[in-house]
Computed example of a mutant assay.
Amino acid sequence: MKIKCFNIVSVVTDNGENKGVIVFINMTMTYYGYSHGATRVELEKVIRICLECVGIG
C-alpha cells in the first residue's frame, strides 16, 4: 500500500502557477503580525524563558 504525501502549497499552486499569490499572502500575514506587535511579545517570552533557565529571572 503506497501512501501519497502532499502539502498545501503544492495543492494550491498546481505546478507553480499561483506561486506569486502564496508569496503575497505570506508577506501580508507577516506584516500584519509585525505591525501588531507580535515580534515584541515573542521576544519578551523568549528572553523570560532563557533567563528562567539560567536562573537569573
Rank of each mutant, 00 (worst) to 15 (best):
M1Y: 00
K2P: 08
I3S: 13
I3F: 09
K4L: 14
K4E: 15
K4N: 15
K4G: 15
C5H: 07
C5I: 10
C5A: 09
F6H: 13
F6N: 15
N7M: 11
N7G: 15
N7L: 10
V11G: 08
V11A: 08
D14T: 11
D14N: 10
D14F: 03
N15Q: 05
G16L: 10
G16V: 11
N18S: 13
N18E: 05
K19F: 05
K19C: 12
K19N: 13
K19P: 12
K19D: 15
G20F: 13
G20S: 13
G20H: 10
V21P: 07
I22W: 05
I22K: 01
F24D: 15
F24G: 06
I25P: 02
I25D: 09
I25F: 06
M27L: 13
M27I: 04
T28V: 14
M29N: 06
M29D: 10
T30C: 09
T30A: 05
Y31V: 04
G33C: 09
G33Y: 01
Y34L: 07
S35Y: 01
S35P: 08
S35V: 06
H36A: 14
H36L: 14
G37M: 01
A38G: 14
A38D: 06
T39A: 09
T39I: 04
R40G: 14
R40F: 01
V41L: 02
V41I: 07
E42Y: 00
L43M: 04
L43C: 12
E44Y: 03
E44G: 06
K45D: 03
K45R: 11
K45A: 09
V46E: 01
V46I: 07
V46A: 04
V46W: 03
V46S: 01
I47W: 02
I47E: 03
I47Q: 02
I47V: 06
R48K: 00
C50K: 08
C50V: 08
L51W: 00
L51C: 11
L51V: 12
L51Q: 00
L51N: 03
L51Y: 00
C53A: 05
C53V: 11
V54L: 14
G55M: 10
I56N: 13
I56T: 15
I56E: 15
I56F: 11
